[in-house]
Protein backbone atom coordinates (compact mmCIF):
# COMPACT_ATOMS: atom_id res chain seq x y z
CA UNK A 1 0.00 0.00 0.00
CA UNK A 2 2.76 2.41 0.98
CA UNK A 3 4.66 1.68 -2.23
CA UNK A 4 1.52 2.26 -4.25
CA UNK A 5 1.08 5.63 -2.59
CA UNK A 6 4.68 6.54 -3.29
CA UNK A 7 4.35 5.45 -6.89
CA UNK A 8 1.22 7.53 -7.29
CA UNK A 9 2.87 10.58 -5.80
CA UNK A 10 6.09 10.42 -7.78
CA UNK A 11 4.18 9.71 -10.98
CA UNK A 12 1.81 12.63 -10.53
CA UNK A 13 4.73 14.87 -9.49
CA UNK A 14 6.52 13.91 -12.72
CA UNK A 15 9.48 12.37 -10.93
CA UNK A 16 10.31 9.93 -13.70
CA UNK A 17 13.34 8.21 -12.19
CA UNK A 18 11.61 7.62 -8.86
CA UNK A 19 8.32 6.42 -10.39
CA UNK A 20 10.06 3.91 -12.64
CA UNK A 21 12.24 2.69 -9.77
CA UNK A 22 9.29 2.06 -7.45
CA UNK A 23 7.26 0.43 -10.20
CA UNK A 24 10.11 -1.96 -10.98
CA UNK A 25 10.31 -2.96 -7.35
CA UNK A 26 6.57 -3.23 -6.83
CA UNK A 27 6.00 -5.30 -9.95
CA UNK A 28 8.15 -8.11 -8.52
CA UNK A 29 6.00 -8.50 -5.39
CA UNK A 30 2.96 -10.76 -5.03
CA UNK A 31 0.09 -9.22 -7.05
CA UNK A 32 2.47 -6.38 -7.87
CA UNK A 33 1.73 -6.18 -11.58
CA UNK A 34 -1.96 -5.49 -10.98
CA UNK A 35 -1.05 -2.95 -8.31
CA UNK A 36 1.31 -1.13 -10.66
CA UNK A 37 -1.27 -1.11 -13.43
CA UNK A 38 -4.04 0.21 -11.20
CA UNK A 39 -1.82 2.85 -9.64
CA UNK A 40 -0.54 4.10 -12.96
CA UNK A 41 -4.09 4.33 -14.29
CA UNK A 42 -5.08 6.32 -11.26
CA UNK A 43 -2.04 8.54 -11.71
CA UNK A 44 -2.88 9.18 -15.37
CA UNK A 45 -6.39 10.10 -14.37
CA UNK A 46 -5.06 12.56 -11.82
CA UNK A 47 -2.68 14.06 -14.38
CA UNK A 48 -5.66 14.46 -16.73
CA UNK A 49 -7.60 16.22 -13.98
CA UNK A 50 -4.73 18.60 -13.33
CA UNK A 51 -4.56 19.28 -17.07
CA UNK A 52 -8.25 20.07 -17.27
CA UNK A 53 -7.90 22.33 -14.26
CA UNK A 54 -5.18 24.28 -16.08
CA UNK A 55 -2.45 23.29 -13.64
CA UNK A 56 -0.72 20.90 -15.97
CA UNK A 57 0.14 21.50 -19.63
CA UNK A 58 0.79 19.37 -22.71
CA UNK A 59 4.36 18.98 -21.55
CA UNK A 60 3.14 17.08 -18.47
CA UNK A 61 0.77 14.96 -20.58
CA UNK A 62 3.61 13.94 -22.86
CA UNK A 63 5.95 13.20 -19.96
CA UNK A 64 3.22 11.25 -18.15
CA UNK A 65 2.41 9.28 -21.31
CA UNK A 66 6.06 8.41 -21.72
CA UNK A 67 6.32 7.28 -18.08
CA UNK A 68 3.16 5.21 -18.44
CA UNK A 69 4.51 3.47 -21.54
CA UNK A 70 7.90 2.83 -19.92
CA UNK A 71 6.27 1.24 -16.91
CA UNK A 72 3.75 -0.76 -18.91
CA UNK A 73 6.55 -2.22 -20.99
CA UNK A 74 7.78 -4.27 -18.02
CA UNK A 75 4.41 -4.58 -16.27
CA UNK A 76 2.06 -5.89 -18.94
CA UNK A 77 4.08 -9.07 -19.66
CA UNK A 78 3.72 -9.96 -15.95
CA UNK A 79 -0.07 -9.79 -15.96
CA UNK A 80 -2.11 -12.98 -16.28
CA UNK A 81 -4.82 -13.14 -18.92
CA UNK A 82 -8.07 -11.71 -17.59
CA UNK A 83 -6.35 -9.35 -15.20
CA UNK A 84 -6.66 -6.45 -17.60
CA UNK A 85 -10.31 -5.52 -17.67
CA UNK A 86 -11.42 -3.56 -20.70
CA UNK A 87 -14.47 -1.32 -20.70
CA UNK A 88 -14.73 -1.22 -24.47
CA UNK A 89 -12.81 -1.03 -27.73
CA UNK A 90 -11.91 2.02 -29.80
CA UNK A 91 -10.40 2.22 -33.25
CA UNK A 92 -8.29 5.40 -33.34
CA UNK A 93 -6.51 7.15 -36.18
CA UNK A 94 -5.44 10.52 -37.57
CA UNK A 95 -7.47 11.15 -40.71
CA UNK A 96 -6.34 11.14 -44.33
CA UNK A 97 -4.03 13.98 -45.30
CA UNK A 98 -3.04 14.71 -41.72
CA UNK A 99 0.23 13.46 -40.26
CA UNK A 100 0.07 14.94 -36.76
CA UNK A 101 0.31 12.23 -34.13
CA UNK A 102 1.33 13.85 -30.86
CA UNK A 103 -2.23 14.66 -29.76
CA UNK A 104 -3.55 11.30 -30.88
CA UNK A 105 -0.82 9.50 -28.95
CA UNK A 106 -1.51 11.47 -25.78
CA UNK A 107 -5.19 10.72 -26.03
CA UNK A 108 -4.43 7.06 -26.72
CA UNK A 109 -2.35 6.58 -23.57
CA UNK A 110 -4.98 8.30 -21.45
CA UNK A 111 -7.80 6.29 -22.99
CA UNK A 112 -5.86 3.07 -22.42
CA UNK A 113 -5.13 4.06 -18.87
CA UNK A 114 -8.85 4.49 -18.34
CA UNK A 115 -9.48 0.92 -19.44
CA UNK A 116 -10.38 1.39 -23.09
CA UNK A 117 -8.79 -1.09 -25.46
CA UNK A 118 -7.40 1.18 -28.19
CA UNK A 119 -6.57 -0.09 -31.67
CA UNK A 120 -4.28 2.57 -33.14
CA UNK A 121 -4.39 2.54 -36.94
CA UNK A 122 -1.87 5.35 -37.36
CA UNK A 123 -1.79 8.66 -39.20
CA UNK A 124 -2.87 9.79 -42.68
CA UNK A 125 -5.40 6.94 -42.56
CA UNK A 126 -7.40 6.28 -45.77
CA UNK A 127 -11.19 6.06 -45.39
CA UNK A 128 -11.27 2.38 -46.30
CA UNK A 129 -8.74 1.55 -43.61
CA UNK A 130 -11.17 2.84 -40.98
CA UNK A 131 -13.87 0.59 -42.49
CA UNK A 132 -11.59 -2.45 -42.51
CA UNK A 133 -10.54 -1.83 -38.92
CA UNK A 134 -14.17 -1.52 -37.82
CA UNK A 135 -15.00 -4.83 -39.52
CA UNK A 136 -12.02 -6.53 -38.00
CA UNK A 137 -12.12 -5.21 -34.42
CA UNK A 138 -15.83 -4.48 -33.96
CA UNK A 139 -15.22 -1.46 -31.73
CA UNK A 140 -17.95 0.39 -29.87
CA UNK A 141 -16.24 3.71 -30.65
CA UNK A 142 -14.22 5.15 -33.47
CA UNK A 143 -11.92 8.06 -32.65
CA UNK A 144 -10.58 10.42 -35.30
CA UNK A 145 -7.85 12.96 -34.72
CA UNK A 146 -7.69 16.07 -36.91
CA UNK A 147 -5.16 18.89 -36.63
CA UNK A 148 -5.43 20.52 -40.03
CA UNK A 149 -8.41 22.06 -41.78
CA UNK A 150 -7.97 19.68 -44.70
CA UNK A 151 -8.77 16.92 -42.22
CA UNK A 152 -12.27 18.28 -41.66
CA UNK A 153 -13.35 17.10 -45.07
CA UNK A 154 -11.44 13.84 -44.59
CA UNK A 155 -13.50 13.15 -41.47
CA UNK A 156 -16.71 13.94 -43.32
CA UNK A 157 -15.83 11.56 -46.13
CA UNK A 158 -14.60 8.87 -43.78
CA UNK A 159 -17.91 8.98 -41.95
CA UNK A 160 -19.77 8.81 -45.28
CA UNK A 161 -17.75 5.78 -46.31
CA UNK A 162 -18.45 4.12 -42.95
CA UNK A 163 -22.13 4.82 -43.54
CA UNK A 164 -22.03 3.39 -47.06
CA UNK A 165 -20.48 0.24 -45.64
CA UNK A 166 -23.53 -0.04 -43.38
CA UNK A 167 -21.46 0.23 -40.19
CA UNK A 168 -22.44 3.65 -38.88
CA UNK A 169 -25.26 2.43 -36.63
CA UNK A 170 -22.98 -0.04 -34.83
CA UNK A 171 -20.56 2.59 -33.59
CA UNK A 172 -20.23 5.97 -31.93
CA UNK A 173 -17.79 8.45 -33.43
CA UNK A 174 -15.73 10.90 -31.40
CA UNK A 175 -13.49 13.45 -33.06
CA UNK A 176 -10.57 15.28 -31.48
CA UNK A 177 -7.57 17.46 -32.23
CA UNK A 178 -6.94 21.12 -32.77
CA UNK A 179 -9.37 21.65 -35.64
CA UNK A 180 -12.55 20.26 -34.10
CA UNK A 181 -15.45 22.15 -32.57
CA UNK A 182 -19.18 21.80 -32.08
CA UNK A 183 -19.69 23.24 -35.59
CA UNK A 184 -17.22 20.79 -37.11
CA UNK A 185 -18.83 17.88 -35.27
CA UNK A 186 -22.21 18.76 -36.73
CA UNK A 187 -20.72 19.40 -40.16
CA UNK A 188 -19.05 15.98 -40.38
CA UNK A 189 -21.76 14.02 -38.57
CA UNK A 190 -19.87 12.76 -35.53
CA UNK A 191 -21.37 12.05 -32.09
CA UNK A 192 -18.95 13.90 -29.82
CA UNK A 193 -15.91 16.12 -29.95
CA UNK A 194 -13.07 17.09 -27.63
CA UNK A 195 -10.03 19.24 -28.09
CA UNK A 196 -8.42 18.02 -24.94
CA UNK A 197 -7.56 14.47 -24.03
CA UNK A 198 -9.04 14.40 -20.54
CA UNK A 199 -12.41 15.59 -21.78
CA UNK A 200 -12.13 13.14 -24.69
CA UNK A 201 -11.67 10.25 -22.28
CA UNK A 202 -14.62 11.38 -20.20
CA UNK A 203 -16.86 11.64 -23.26
CA UNK A 204 -15.67 8.29 -24.60
CA UNK A 205 -16.64 6.64 -21.34
CA UNK A 206 -20.06 8.29 -21.60
CA UNK A 207 -20.45 7.01 -25.14
CA UNK A 208 -19.66 3.53 -23.85
CA UNK A 209 -22.67 3.98 -21.59
Amino acid sequence: MLMQKELLKSFVDMDEAEAVRIARELVETEGGAVAVLDTCKEAMEEVGRLFEAGEYFLSELIAAGDMFNQIMEFTLPKLQGGEVASIGTMVLGTVLGDVHNIGKDIFKVMAEASGINVIDIGIDVPHEKFVEAIKEHKPEIVGMSCLITLGVDSMKRTIEVIEEAGLRDDIKIIIGGGRVSQAVMEHVGADAWADDAARGVRLSKELLG
Binding site: T149, V152, S181, V184, E186
Partner: peptide, 9 residues
Protein backbone atom coordinates in the same frame (compact mmCIF):
# COMPACT_ATOMS: atom_id res chain seq x y z
CA UNK B 1 -11.68 34.04 -37.51
CA UNK B 2 -11.28 30.29 -37.19
CA UNK B 3 -10.78 28.51 -40.50
CA UNK B 4 -12.80 25.57 -39.14
CA UNK B 5 -15.71 28.04 -38.92
CA UNK B 6 -15.17 29.20 -42.49
CA UNK B 7 -15.59 25.57 -43.53
CA UNK B 8 -18.43 24.59 -41.22
CA UNK B 9 -20.69 27.59 -40.62
Amino acid sequence: IDVSDIISL
